[in-house]
Design a protein around this nucleic acid. Structure first.
Length: 664
RNA sequence: GCUGGCGUAGCUCAAUUGGCAGAGCACCUGUUUUGUAAACAGGCGGUUAGGGGUUCGACUCCCCUCGCUAGCUCCA
């Protein structure tokens, strides 16, 4: 007999050689049926794996997130099996689980797989799922029959799998395979007990990929799919995908006339009037908060000398992402002739970051520790060259505005500054209904400047601030900026998608490189610490995020047009104008629709533009001096007055800031 | 940057085997003066992304460039 421990701390006695499945059956038939896999001493394993004395075991059911990963990995095998039945010439490579499902990278010696092939593959998958074939784990020495059968599975010539097996042998790991029916695949496992679990699967897309992610290696076809335990979950997921498509900020941006792009300026957005209104609202809301926190706004040049970028380290570390100016001059002899790429005596570069500009301002006069922490803020427009394939609406552009700021302070002040920023940023995200915030700490990357000691000091300072704040965070090794470690804020939107927005970066290098000093209490000169920080990250990108988060239905304070006034006939145009003027005087962004269309048409028009409040006025309203307000979200109507509307609706930005901090 | 897909009016999309470039919406004009998601009629709108080629003839087939797009890689 052996003894195993359960999650509740109790112990169970089992027969020698009993498996987790046996354990589940002993606990109850319900659990035995619901069991998907087991967690043994913290590792997810097959249910069929024999347990050992003293193991800590918990049975995983479909409620456990780990179980979903097991399911999806099994679904990848199922798909691989089906693809081989449809495309016998296909060669399998790897098939891992990803956030929303799984994929399998396949090498096609000839032919290709397109979405048109999905139904065929899915039909095969359904058939195999229906057969309820058990997944069996087999361990091989690389010479036995199992291995021979495995090698034959996709033609016997598969060099990708051979390479994987070589790697396993080199690392001295166990060579394991999983078999269902006639299909065998190299796999560490674990898997669900049988293909019967895999009835709710769906192929989603195909994409190109490279073997081992290396562009110089073989091109592979990556087939994506997803799997769920129940039909409902799959349906909900597919529905969420549709929902995400409807919320796509690129589509809404065009429909709502917020911004547009031109072939002549790839990756550079053009903000139309309504988009510019939103953009400015983001900036103004932020400015209000910055003032209350003792920031001073500055403005620095777009173009600075190349030598400055050498000094800052950007030239060495960020060259590929920078735009450089280039001169064209008319030939002295022949004015018709234009000389391209004229070498400048003092070459210039467009700023990809604002920090050197702020350093110049810091250096413009002497500083004392008495004015610390000194905080310079700028809505800084930066330009960054991006590879053509990565541009994406407002999420990834080549010119964007950072709500950037740099704090100059003493090493002792770092903790308080970081803690202040965490509260500050969380307040901002909450204002946009983005309350789900995740924090990551990124450490020294491969390409970096500064000493080991400096990095250690900086990393531990950030860690300490986070620990003192008592908030959970995840460490991201090697993901820091080239000049220092950073704390990143990832926020989840209403569709549970994660976006990186805020960042707090510690920098001991730049102040030294630029010879920044301050006079301390001891009368001596010291080098200040610099904190780079941004809350929105990029206003453009943040705007894209909130467009999708709100599906274009902005709360009243953000709506580019807050109120649309519609008279029921031209007799009431004058009254409509008067109402609009009253609202305008109160600071409301109001428009009046005096066209000769029907009221129904104008209401529809305002609805499509997602204007939060429609005011309809006619005989009744004019004679009683009232307005009729229709709300965008529920279509409800009410009779009211302009002052009452102003009193009940938050047309102004939210105010939840802590007590103001006086600026120096 | 790489691989695949795509590019027709401002937008969404048609155009049979290579055979006269078209519709709805939007816009403009007129009639209509309207009560909570679409009144009616007419009109304007195109170097079919750009360039080259094949052909009697190219939106359609081929090549190059640009852009968009899904991924890969990278990032705010």
């Amino acid at each position: 007999m052996i003894q195993v421990k359960l999650p509740d701390g109790s112990a169970r006695a089992l027969e020698e050689g009993a498996s987790a499945a046996d354990l589940a059956a002993q606990i109850g038939s319900g659990l035995a049926k619901a069991a998907v896999a087991a967690k043994v001493n913290g590792a997810v394993r097959d249910l069929a794996l024999p347990l050992r004395d003293g193991d800590e075991v918990s049975i995983l059911t479909k409620k456990d997130p780990e179980a979903l990963e097991v399911l999806r990995h099994s679904a990848a095998h199922l798909m691989a099996d089906a693809i081989l039945r449809v495309f016998p010439q296909a060669e399998l490579t790897i098939g891992p689980v990803v956030e929303d499902g799984f994929y399998y990278d396949i090498h096609m010696k000839d032919g290709k797989i397109t979405p048109e092939d999905f139904p065929k593959i899915e039909d095969e998958m359904k058939r195999i799922a229906q057969e309820g074939l058990p997944f069996q784990r087999c361990v091989s020495d690389g010479k036995d029959e199992i291995f021979a059968r495995y090698r034959a599975i996709d033609g016997g010539q598969n060099k990708f799998k051979a390479e994987l097996i070589e790697g396993i042998a080199e690392r001295g790991e166990e060579l394991s395979f999983y078999k269902h029916g006639e299909f065998i695949d190299l796999c560490r496992g674990p898997h669900v007990p049988s293909t019967a679990f895999l009835k709710n699967v769906k192929l989603t897309k195909v994409a190109g990929a490279y073997w081992r992610g290396d562009a110089t290696r073989e091109q592979l076809v990556r087939v994506y799919g997803t799997a769920f335990f129940t039909k409902e979950e799959l349906k909900d997921y597919l529905h969420a995908l549709e929902e995400a498509k409807k919320r796509d900020h690129r589509v809404l941006g065009e429909k709502l006339e917020l911004f547009t792009f031109s072939e002549d300026a790839p990756g550079f957005p053009f903000f139309q009037p309504k988009g510019a209104t939103l953009f400015n609202l983001l900036a103004e809301y932020m400015r209000g908060l910055l003032r209350r926190r003792g920031y001073q706004e500055v403005k620095t040049p777009l173009i600075l000398s190349e030598s400055l970028w050498h000094r800052s380290g950007h030239y060495d570390n960020y060259l590929e992402n920078m735009f450089f100016t280039k001169l064209k001059l008319r030939d002295d002899e022949d004015p018709e002739q234009i000389n391209d790429n004229v070498v400048e005596d003092r070459p210039m570069a467009v700023k990809p970051m604002n920090c050197p500009g702020h350093l110049m301002i810091y250096k413009s006069r002497q500083h004392s520790h008495n004015e610390f922490p000194l905080r310079f803020a700028e809505m800084g427009l930066v330009h960054r060259r991006e590879l053509s394939g990565v541009r994406h609406g407002l999420f990834r552009v080549q010119a964007f505005t950072q709500d950037d700021a740099h704090h100059f302070c003493t090493p002792e002040q770092i903790g308080d500054e970081v803690k202040m920023l965490i509260d500050f940023f969380e307040e901002v995200y909450a204002a946009f209904d983005l309350g789900d915030v995740r924090i990551e700490l990124s450490t020294r990357p491969a390409k970096s400047i500064g000493s080991d000691e400096m990095w250690e000091k900086a990393e531990s300072a950030l860690k300490q601030a986070l620990d003192e704040k008592g908030i959970p965070y995840q460490v991201n090794p090697g993901d820091g900026a080239f000049y220092g470690p950073k704390i990143d804020f990832h926020i989840r939107d209403v569709l549970k998608r994660s976006w990186q927005c805020g960042t707090i970066q510690l920098d001991f290098s730049m102040p030294e490189r630029f010879g920044l000093t301050y006079v301390g209490a001891d009368g001596e000169r010291h080098t200040p610490v610099m904190i780079h920080r941004a809350c929105y990250g990029s206003l453009e990108r943040f705007l894209g995020i909130i467009i999708e988060n709100y599906a274009g239905n902005f709360p009243a304070w953000l709506a580019p047009v807050q109120v649309m006034v519609i008279p029921v006939g031209e007799k009431f145009d004058a009254y409509a104008k008067r109402v609009a003027e009253e609202l305008l005087d109160a600071g409301v962004r109001v428009e009046t629709n005096l066209s000769d269309d029907r009221v129904g048409y104008k209401i529809r028009d305002a609805s499509l533009k997602k204007v939060p409040y429609v005011v309809v006025v006619g005989e009744k309203e004019q004679s009683s001096g009232t307005i009729n307000v229709r709300h965008r979200d529920d279509g409800s109507q009410r009779e009211t007055t302009v002052p009452e509307l102003l009193a009940t609706v938050n047309f102004a930005p939210p105010k939840r800031s802590p007590p103001a901090v006086a600026a120096e």
